Amino acid sequence: METSLTIAEVAQRTGLTAYTLRYYERIGLIAAVPRAPGGQRRYASADMDLLDFLLRLRETGMSIQGMQAFVRLRNQGDASVGERREMLEQHLAEVQARVAALQQSMQALSLKIDHYRAVEKTKKRPPSSGTAPEGKTSNDEHTEPGPQRQPALHARPGQASRDRR
């Protein structure tokens, strides 16, 4: 015989509150949980498996409505396998796009941190000639330097200097 868990045990294992577990049951994310003779909910291992997967979906940002749609399809059995796969593929693509955006943000943060470390490192060095006037600080705008114009020191014969205006 399969062992069953109380709502307190499931809450402890999943990190969900008893209130959330009852809410999930009320909105149809999990089927009505069988009750012990005293009326206490008893969760089976199949309930735990579904809860584990729902937590994965929630962790990846799927909405309650999306999870409900998935569970409705799941309740249809094998006839909805293709729709469930498509739904999960679409969700996976959305998760991958968010991960890519986060990676870009992480890269931007890393560049800014490196910039500040370089500024701090320069401030720790003793001042040398040609340093910025006292009181000047680094600009938070981290932009790529534009093209630098170099004066034409020795123009070739027949070629005008670019610096003449």
Rank of each mutant, 00 (worst) to 15 (best):
Q103Y: 00
Q104W: 03
S80C: 12
L5F: 11
Y23Q: 03
A118F: 09
L55G: 02
T6R: 10
E25M: 05
A69G: 14
H115Y: 14
G146F: 14
D47M: 04
E89S: 13
Q107V: 03
Q65W: 05
R22W: 01
A11M: 03
R41L: 00
D114T: 12
T14Q: 05
G66F: 06
K124A: 10
T17S: 15
L51Q: 00
E83V: 12
E144P: 01
A132G: 02
V71L: 09
A11R: 06
V99I: 15
R26I: 11
Q103E: 13
A32P: 02
R56I: 10
Q103V: 00
D49L: 05
V81L: 13
A118V: 08
I113Q: 09
L111M: 11
A101G: 14
D49T: 14
A8H: 11
T3Q: 12
Y43T: 03
Q12F: 06
R72W: 01
S4N: 07
Y43I: 04
R56T: 12
S161V: 08
E25W: 02
A18K: 07
V99P: 06
N139K: 10
S129I: 08
R164L: 15
N75S: 13
Q104R: 15
A46W: 10
D49I: 05
G61W: 02
L92W: 04
A155F: 09
D52G: 02
R13N: 01
E120V: 09
Q159M: 14
G130P: 06
M62F: 07
E25V: 08
G28F: 10
D163C: 10
T17M: 05
Y24N: 01
V81R: 14
K124N: 11
M106T: 10
P151M: 12
R156H: 09
A31I: 01
M48N: 02
A132Y: 06
R35W: 07
D49G: 02
I30W: 00
G158K: 12
K123H: 13
S63F: 08
R85D: 03
L92N: 11
Y19D: 13
S63E: 08
Q40T: 13
D47S: 07
A44M: 06
Y43D: 00
E89P: 00
K112Y: 07
H91E: 13
F70C: 04
V10N: 06
R58S: 01
A69P: 00
A46M: 06
A79E: 11
G77P: 05
E141R: 13
N139V: 11
R117K: 07
R42M: 09
L5M: 12
L16Y: 03
A160F: 03
R84G: 00
E59K: 15
A32C: 07
K123G: 13
T131M: 14
T143C: 13
I30K: 04
Q104G: 15
A160G: 12
